[in-house]
Amino acid sequence: MRMINLRYISNWRVLLIAVVVLVCLLLSSQLGVVKPYEIVDPLDILGEGSTLFLTILIVIFTVTDRPRGNVTNLFYSGGLLLIFSMTLDVLDEFFRYPDALRLLSWLESFPLPVGLIIISFAAAEWRRENKMLSRQLMVREKNLRSHQWVDPLTSLYTTPYFIKLVEREIALQNSTDAESTVLVSVNFKNFAQYNHEMGTKAGDELLHQASELMVLLLRPQDCLCREHSDHFLILLPQTRLSQADRLMKVIAQNLNSELELPNYMSVEVHTHHVEELSAVDAITALHTQVEEMTHYAPLAN
């Protein structure tokens, strides 16, 4: 719980919400006078205050738990305007303003519809995003639906399912003139250190975000599975090695930038052109290549 709270506090967008509330309080206290206790309506305070509190919680959960992107930014921008208007509305119950002063009335009324319009655009983008995610979920399932092979953390398929797909691609490649098949290994270097420093919950969240990002960036015919821990395997059917290298370069760049990895972490990607006659041999050859490159890297330094 302590780690989660620190994550919320360290998010600048959460801090900006607190700044907006403080600005509203400063405006009301400077431009108005405190109402007598007798005319304060507790029911209005309870209703408007609880609505404001829930709105703030929803916005905080949106910006901290959703992946970054246009949808999250729109929800946050619209929510920030709602919080601004609703905070001034709550403070109206505590402060009285001069009749000639219309500034706070405008500030209370104008941002509200603008915020709702922005949230409407966010909802439309969210709908499009969900359609894309549904299509990617269908890509994950391919032709097999044995859900005992689904990884519970990332919702990706595990190695047994991956082996069956590779076997199918090898059979197709040998029986037709289809283009070659490429296997890819994606590892997060020093993930154990990240788990130790940030906690297992943060590590699980990192793997979940990484899997979602890779699924979005891969092609419909590709298949991603979680082999174990921070190791992922990707099947790129009917793909030349040069094409695979270009695609995985883009994916690695996005993983490094979007996940905000610490300096000691990096994404390691290795591609292998499948020439073996069985899936197990192909995956073993990929692992051997990864081990050789891992042992070679320190010598190159």
Rank of each mutant, 00 (worst) to 15 (best):
V23I: 12
C24W: 06
C24Y: 09
C24E: 11
L26C: 14
L26H: 12
V34F: 14
I39M: 13
D44I: 08
F53I: 13
F53G: 08
V59H: 04
I60W: 02
T64R: 00
D65W: 07
P67G: 02
R68C: 11
N70E: 14
Y76L: 02
S77V: 14
G78N: 01
G79V: 05
F84P: 02
S85W: 00
S85I: 00
L88M: 02
L88F: 04
D89E: 11
V90M: 05
F94H: 04
F94G: 06
P98Q: 01
D99R: 11
L101I: 10
L101H: 11
R102I: 14
L103P: 00
L103V: 09
E108G: 11
E108A: 07
P113N: 01
L116W: 10
I117Y: 13
I117K: 00
I118M: 02
S120T: 13
A122Q: 05
A122E: 07
E125R: 10
R128E: 14
E129F: 06
R135V: 03
E141I: 03
Q148T: 08
W149V: 03
V150I: 15
T154D: 06
T154K: 06
S155E: 09
T158D: 07
Y161A: 06
Y161K: 09
I163D: 04
I163T: 11
K164N: 08
K164E: 12
V166I: 07
V166M: 02
S175Y: 03
E179L: 09
V186G: 01
F188S: 04
K189Y: 11
K189T: 09
F191S: 04
F191C: 04
A192I: 12
A202G: 02
G203H: 03
H208Y: 14
H208A: 10
Q209M: 11
Q209P: 00
L216D: 01
R219A: 06
P220M: 08
Q221V: 13
D222P: 00
R226Q: 05
S229P: 03
H231R: 13
H231N: 12
P237G: 04
Q238K: 15
R240F: 01
S242W: 00
I251A: 05
Q253D: 14
Q253T: 10
L255N: 01
S257L: 10
E258D: 13
E258H: 14
L259P: 01
E260D: 15
E260Q: 15
L261G: 00
V269Y: 03
E275I: 12
A279I: 06
A279H: 02
D281S: 14
A285F: 00
H287I: 11
V290Q: 02
M293P: 05
M293C: 07
H295K: 13
Y296T: 04
P298E: 03
L299F: 11
